[in-house]
Design a binder for these strands. Structure first.
Lengths: 135, 135
DNA sequence: TTAGACCTTCCAGCACACTGGAAGGTCAAG
DNA sequence: CTTGACCTTCCAGTGTGCTGGAAGGTCTAA
C-alpha cells in the first residue's frame, strides 16, 4: 500500500503520514524497488489508534510513549490509565482558567456597556480595560 | 528610565520589553547618548494596560490593534467591545470542546478501570483507547 | 515519447509569547 | 585601570501538529 492510498483511507495527507514516521509514531515501512514507501495493511489500525488517542486529548508525545511500550511487548495499560487521569486533571485546570477569564471578560463587557465613549481620555489607553478601579 | 528599571517595575524582563517594542506594542523610546533606551514615565501605564488586556485573554495582536487605534487618536471603545464579545464566544467554544474531551476521557477511565490487562492482545495497540466497541 | 500523477528528500514556516545566548558597547564605583 | 552590572543587536529556539514548496525520481497510460 502506497502512502497516498494509506493517507486517503485514513483521511490524512501523505505529508502527515511522513511526519508521523519522523515523529516516531509509525515505524519506517519497507520500500518498493523505486523507493516508495510500501505499507503493510496493519498500518491503518495504528493510524486509527493515533486518531482515537488524539481525540481523547493525548499529545503525539504521549501517544508515542504508548506505542513504544506496546512495540516493546509490554501492555501499556497502567501507563494509559495514568495519562488519562493526568489529562482529566489538566482539563479541570484549563476549565477553571477559562471560567476565570470568562468572569473577567463579563466584567469588562458590563463596563463597556455602561461606559460613555466621551469619557475616554487620551491619557488612559482604554478605560474599559485598563481602569478597573474607575479611577 | 532605563529598560531594566522599567522591566523590574512592571515585573517583566528587559527581553520582553524589547520584544514588545519589536511587536509594535511599545513605541521606540528615545535613546541616551550611549544608545540606551530611555523610557518616559508613562510607559508603565502602557505596560499595565498590556498586562490587563492579556489577563482578559486578548492576544498581543489584538492589544496592538487597540493601541494603534488609541495612538491614532481614535477612541477604541467599539473595537474593544467587539473583541470582548469575540473572546467570550471563543471561551464558550473552548469550554464546550473541553467538556467533550472530558466526557471521552471519563469513558476511557471507566473502561480502564474495568479492563483486565491480560485481555490486551498484541494485535490491538491498546484496547482501552483503541477499541470503543469492545471488539 | 511525453504528460501527469504520484512519490522522494530537505528546508522552512505557521501561530503564540516569549526566551536564550553570543558578541560586543557603556557606565559608575573602587 | 579594571571589574562588573547593565545595556546593545542579532540570530535562533521553545512546544505543538502539522503544512507548503522546491527540486527531483518513478511509474502508467496514451
Amino acid at each position: 500500500m502506497r502512502i497516498g492510498e494509506l493517507a486517503a483511507a485514513n483521511d490524512l495527507t501523505p505529508k502527515t503520514i511522513r511526519f508521523y514516521e519522523q515523529a516516531g509514531l509509525l515505524p519506517a515501512p519497507p520500500r518498493t524497488a523505486g523507493g516508495y514507501r510500501d505499507y503493510p495493511p496493519r498500518t491503518g489500525a495504528r493510524l486509527a489508534f493515533v486518531r482515537d488517542a488524539q481525540s481523547a486529548g493525548l499529545t503525539l508525545a504521549e501517544i508515542r510513549s504508548i506505542l513504544a511500550l506496546r512495540d516493546s511487548g509490554e501492555a501499556p495499560c497502567a501507563h494509559v490509565t495514568d495519562l488519562i487521569q493526568q489529562h482529566l486533571d489538566d482539563i479541570e485546570r484549563r476549565m477553571a482558567e477559562l471560567r476565570k477569564t470568562r468572569t473577567a471578560l463579563r466584567g469588562l463587557a458590563e463596563r463597556a456597556a455602561t461606559t460613555d465613549p466621551s469619557t475616554c481620555t487620551d491619557a488612559d489607553i482604554c478605560s474599559i480595560i485598563g481602569d478597573p478601579a474607575g479611577r
